[in-house]
Design a protein around this nucleic acid. Structure first.
Length: 412
RNA sequence: GUGAUUGUAGCUCAGUUGGUUAGAGCGCCUGGUUGUGGCCCAGGAGGUCGGGGGUUCGAGUCCCCUCGUUCACCCCA
């Protein structure tokens, strides 16, 4: 395809029939969130760069190298790479009520990365945030709601993995403990991990390199270096989930990169996705904005990845296409004008109604009607106009009958 | 940022060791008796072979650059 008609690299136009799937997902998401008492929040796509730097962490790759940022005037700005930072920025501004809020968003996110399967530069997430002090039940409810949503979409075969990052005070002992445990194996680790051991030990834990994995299996998990309170917190989350019959796997090797996470973190993966098999993630966080720290828990689901998984489940956009509606066939100029009026009446009733706007052969009009997916075709020519009737054809059956126009409009 | 892969009609793809007006299937349009779709038949429209440079008598086919696609790494949804 010619370049000038293509969207930017890593960005896509979304159109029928796939758009029908998007709409279904959005509608059901709103319904599920409503059932849990969440309200929708729409924040701007563009924020001050500092909003993201402070909350996501300015050493993370997302902030360091994946943001679309620029400085049009006084402030340095950035397109949001995720939804939590902006949401918390908003809630923090609402004072006390922002500390006990439940909101959701459905919005595009932007990350300047090389595209690959399930990874776009503009991608879409549906996410929620529930602010409030750390509480295992809040985390469990959040996961339950997320599962609820995936079920509502008809997604099967996804797996929830859960772990904990512990409290902020656990970070040092965890990092030091892991480093000490890894040192003896340092030379056997891959190049990346040898660098990561000092830079970001946690990343060694989820290295995909096979030999690194074997070493990691031999050393204690990060959780084992945490305080009893942190471990107890995770146990309570898992217990609450099992009470709700939600299956999760505790995976201490699960690492989530954003700095703001504390305690519970989780990821939902699906085998249909390829190398990037996580379609959703979530966790508890503590985000410092100004003088206050906002505690909360939330999740995000990637639309594009969820769609790949849904497609693998045999769920596609076609299945959610609108009703085929009615097609009007006009024979002659007079009928054409009369059908314009008829179409207006039908459309006012919310019926999908199409017609050819120029005089064409009946065959051409029928062909178009058929391809439009219309269930019903109304044929009118001079004869019908004179008698005040319409020939109504059922496209699936192939049968047709004459009925009075008045009656047809009334029953349509 | 790194490493691969691929780029020919709306879509899926053929195009032999570089050689005359670039093909197929599907789709689209128009016909096949006067007012009837989906099947069948016939005809037709539609391509600066992603773009730019180079080699050559001659390039869709070779070389270089560039822009995209797809996939993987880093990282993340």
């Amino acid at each position: 395809m010619a370049n000038e008609f293509q969207p930017l690299q890593g960005m896509s136009d979304i159109y029928a029939p796939e758009i029908y799937l998007w709409r279904m997902m959005e509608e059901r998401a709103r319904a599920v969130f409503n059932a849990y008492g969440y309200d929708e929040l729409r924040t701007p796509s563009l924020e001050k760069l500092s909003v993201f730097k402070r909350s996501i962490g300015d050493t993370t790759d997302v902030v360091k190298k994946e943001m679309y940022s620029f400085k049009p005037s006084k402030h340095e700005l950035a397109l949001r790479p995720e939804g939590t930072a902006g949401t918390i920025r908003h809630l923090a501004g609402r004072g006390e009520e922002g500390l006990n809020a439940r909101v959701f968003y459905i919005a595009p996110m932007f990350r300047y990365e090389r595209p690959q399967a399930g990874r776009k530069r503009q991608f879409h997430q549906v996410g929620v945030e529930a602010t409030g002090e750390a509480n295992p039940l809040a985390d469990a409810e959040c996961i339950a709601m997320q599962k609820n949503l995936l079920d509502a979409w008809g997604l099967t075969g996804s797996k929830i993995q859960i772990s904990t990052r512990g409290e902020p005070s656990d970070r040092k002992p965890v990092a030091e403990g892991l480093r000490a445990a890894l040192r003896p194996f340092e030379n056997e680790l891959c190049e990346d991990c040898q660098r990561r051991i000092d830079e970001n030990v946690l990343r060694v834990i989820d290295c995909k390199n096979e030999s690194c994995g074997k070493i990691v299996d031999q050393i204690p998990s990060a959780i084992e270096f945490m305080s009893p309170a942190s471990r107890d917190y995770l146990d309570q989350v898992v217990e609450a989930l099992s009470a709700m019959d939600i299956e999760v796997t505790v995976n201490p090797k699960l690492i989530r990169g954003l700095d703001y996470y504390v305690h519970t973190v989780w990821e939902i993966s699906h085998s249909a996705l390829g190398a990037q098999d996580a379609l959703a993630g979530g966790g508890r966080y503590e985000i410092a904005l100004g003088k206050k720290g906002i505690p909360g828990v939330g999740f995000a689901i990637g639309f594009e990845r969820a769609i790949m998984a849904l497609n693998a489940c045999g769920i596609t956009g076609e299945q959610f296409a609108p009703d085929g509606g009615i097609w009007l066939v006009s024979l002659g100029e007079a009928a054409l004008k009369e059908n314009m009026k008829l179409a207006r009446e039908l459309r006012a009733k919310g019926i999908r109604c199409g017609m050819e706007l120029e005089a064409k052969s009946m065959k051409a009009q029928m062909r178009k009607a058929s391809r439009s997916g219309a269930n019903t075709v109304v044929i009118r020519g001079d004869e019908e106009l004179e008698k005040g009737i319409a020939v109504v054809k059922d496209m699936a059956e192939g049968s047709q009958q004459e009925i009075s126009l008045e009656e047809f409009v009334r029953d349509a």
